[in-house]
Design a protein around this nucleic acid. Sequence first.
DNA 1: TCAGATTTGTTCGTATGTATT
DNA 2: CAATACATACGAACAAATCTG
Lengths: 82, 82
Amino acid sequence: MPGGRGVDPQSATPVYLQVAARIRERIVSGDLQPDRPIPSESAIEQEFEVARGTARKAIAVLREEGLVITVKGRGSYVTPAL
Amino acid sequence: MPGGRGVDPQSATPVYLQVAARIRERIVSGDLQPDRPIPSESAIEQEFEVARGTARKAIAVLREEGLVITVKGRGSYVTPAL
DNA sequence: TCAGATTTGTTCGTATGTATT
DNA sequence: CAATACATACGAACAAATCTG
């Protein structure tokens, strides 16, 4: 079985978009709250069994959507409510 | 000279494995003895002219092999003889 | 007590090379 | 060819534990 939890490498949808979608869900659902950190790149690597570059691309998508902000040496955080 | 003493970045063998192999030799040869510290990450950086991440990966290999133990704030030590 | 240096731990930033699709 | 994905490697910043004076 395919990796178990997580993403489907065979899907037409790129893995990094699948990962981004998973994390997006946690944000919009409130599972991940404003000003709180999202999983680190390395945590995403392990949870979804993807390479670091793929984890980074997923986060970049959410950043471009304005859902998260990223701080060097710290991590990425759900964008604070206004 | 190319990098002087040390590793070969052009080799098919990853640098971190080359560094691990060098330190492993010192352990099995008795150059580095049980319960004694191995070179710090920063010492490995300088000696082999590698980045810290590479030094850390080399140590991780030896740790997974059970050859060394690592203590935060202290360093890594050759695994004590039973 | 404490301030600074050392050392490992964790995180993101960037670049390169290879393989696959 | 371009996009995707993985592995490797260097750099930089922040954090925590330890040691030293």
